[in-house]
Design a binder for these strands. Structure first.
Length: 575
DNA sequence: GACGCATACGTCACACTATGAAAATAGTG
């Protein structure tokens, strides 16, 4: 089994959890958590770095010891430190940490005092009323534990951004109608356009005496009130989604937005800058001694530490602060920059509308072009096209283009990349198209080397324009296939090919880190919806969000080009 | 455990609130 970065990150996190329960040096624990984060967010595979004997110590938070552990994990799938800890502590004890209300201290108490080593044992002890007798515990926590075990299926759940959006936006509308409420905004990872969201953070400004908190916990979708204070409250919706509300003064709004938007790592970095300048930054403002010198707007908060406003999508502490300081923040791509969509299906394969209907919907969005890119024959379940049907569709598109004003329908295909890297349709028919998307839809389990070679060979074909959904992942349900994305990006650059950022909310593939890699390599990214209906053309906004998280600017995106600029770019890939 | 420098050792990622306990602990961006 190849070891992925996520596996290494999870082993480091497990080590940190176990050390935490043992009450070890907090800085040592933090070192492991930092390393986990570094591994998780790295755009490339650690095992490649090990294989190529690259220096792991160049990675932030990785020194001699952790570099050796990474190497050990890559080679053996585990490491001795972790195995030793696993022997020292019960196997399932880290499960206890997932129960809200239980942290390392209480877990240690449960384990030492009551010999509790698993959720089942915990449940039994709580039922018998033994838990309440321990110091640091009481009846409330005991009850909380029992509830949490009952509903634990839904704890820690993440939701697709696109699933959360309607819930969050409806709730915001509800809160805006509460008496005395002046302002309601969504912050958190939602505002940063993360592809999945764990909870929703809402920020409000309300006049004194406004019943906003009472109305919030009385929301009819709320099935559980997790916390209710004067300024802060949390509820759980029927969907399992947790929503946190924080009520602040107008004078603190910018500081609160900054705090509530995160990310945590970004906040810490900003607060540290404040500290160095003799300032204290919290969610109420920026303070010099007791005096608030900023807080009403985010601009002022950033200005207080000598920075311009940093767009929420970049706030991950992955270089945006340095970029801001040096005046080289990217001018991120905007929805209005998009001139067309290069990936869409119709009823000819597995889409729901006709070419004309899709074209009209695209025109209504203000697009200059829309490409029709059906599946090819191999994908039989989608009624994929063979050469004869594809030629028939080309003729149909010619006819429609004769009638349409303002929008051009481009002729494309989403052709399957076969196991050996050949394409599912012959070169002669592909050559008649405006451009070709090649996608992997089968054999996701090929070993990395084979999968990578397969894709590189496909890109070598004479007619190949865009690599569709390059890693094949499905958020929350399917892992990406094992592919050397660095080599793919490099090959795209050498061959003059483009990469897709598939905007479907379940894909968002390329991800943010890969977008940055493509940008750095000078490979243009095409943000496409892969729409199977007119409604899905609106998914473009999720693609834009992801592209912005990936630092992409207008110039980095293929379909910000006008049709006139686009045609020669496509034509170059079709020789 | 990493990092930076004093190459041995001190410092290291902030700042705050709710909860439910009776002083801490957990959880939040």
């Amino acid at each position: 089994m190849p070891v992925h970065n996520a596996d290494i990150a999870s082993m480091f996190n497990e080590i940190a959890d176990l050390l935490d329960i043992l009450g070890e040096n907090p800085f040592r624990i933090r070192a492991y958590r930092n390393a986990a984060r570094t591994c998780q967010e790295l755009g490339r595979e650690l095992r490649d770095m090990v294989e190529k004997q690259e220096d792991l110590k160049t990675l932030s938070g990785i020194g001699d010891d952790l570099a050796a552990k990474i190497k050990e994990m890559v080679e053996t799938g585990t490491c001795r430190t972790l195995e030793k800890l696993r022997k020292e502590l019960p196997a399932a004890i880290t499960d206890l940490l997932r129960i809200p209300g239980l942290g390392p201290k209480r877990v240690k108490t449960l384990w030492k005092e009551l010999k509790i080593e698993s959720l089942d044992q915990l449940k039994e002890a709580a039922r018998q009323g033994k838990v309440r007798t321990l110091t640091g515990f009481g009846e409330k926590i005991e009850q909380q534990i029992l509830n949490a075990i009952k509903v634990r299926a839904e704890t820690g759940q993440r939701f697709l951004m696109a699933v959360v959006a309607p819930y969050a936006e409806t709730l915001v509308g509800y809160l805006k109608n509460v008496a005395g409420v002046r302002r309601v905004e969504i912050a958190g990872s939602f505002r940063r356009w993360k592809e999945t969201v764990g909870d929703v953070d809402i920020l409000a400004v309300a006049e004194a005496g406004s019943p906003i908190i009472d109305r919030f916990v009385a929301y009819d979708e709320a099935v559980n009130v997790l916390a209710k204070g004067d300024t802060k409250s949390s509820i759980k919706l029927r969907s399992g989604l947790q929503v946190d509300l924080r009520v602040v003064d107008d004078a603190s709004f910018g500081a609160a937005m900054n705090y509530f938007t995160g990310s945590k790592a970004h906040n810490i970095a900003i607060r540290k800058l404040g500290q160095q300048a003799g300032l204290k930054i919290n969610e109420y403002g920026v303070f010099k001694g007791d005096k608030r010198i900023a807080g009403k707007t985010e601009e002022k908060v950033y200005k207080s530490v000598g920075l311009p406003l940093i767009p929420p999508e970049l706030r991950e502490d992955t270089g945006e602060i340095e970029a801001a300081r040096e005046g080289r923040l990217p001018k991120l791509v905007e929805p209005d920059d998009i001139r067309g969509d290069l990936h869409a299906h119709t009823i000819a394969s597995d889409g729901q509308q006709t070419i004309l209907e899709m074209a009209q919907a695209a025109a209504e969005r203000g697009y200059e072009y829309l490409a029709i890119t059906e599946h090819s024959r191999r994908l039989a379940m989608t009624n994929g096209l063979d050469a004869r049907r594809l030629r028939k569709q080309m003729a149909e598109i010619d006819k429609i283009n004769g009638k349409l004003k303002g929008l051009t329908v481009l002729k494309g295909i989403e052709v399957d990349i076969l196991e050996d890297g050949s394409l599912d349709l012959d070169d002669d028919v592909l050559g008649e198209l405006d451009f070709v998307i090649g996608s992997v839809h089968s054999l996701f389990k090929l070993p990395r080397e084979k999968q990578t070679e397969r894709i590189l060979r496909a890109m070598d074909r004479p007619h190949f324009t865009i690599l569709g959904h390059p890693t094949g992942r499905m958020l929350l349900s399917r892992e990406p296939y094992d592919v050397d994305i660095e080599r793919v990006i490099q090959h795209a650059r050498e061959r003059g090919r483009f990469l897709e950022l598939n905007a479907h909310p379940m894909r968002l593939d390329l991800d943010d880190a890969h977008c940055r890699m493509a940008k750095e390599a000078g490979v243009l990214v095409s943000i496409d919806t892969d729409a199977h209906s007119t409604v899905e053309l609106a998914n473009m906004r999720y693609g834009i969000g992801q592209a912005r998280r990936g630092w992409l600017e207008k110039k980095d995106v293929l379909n910000t080009r006008s049709l006139k600029q686009l045609r020669p770019l496509l034509a170059k890939t079709m020789k």
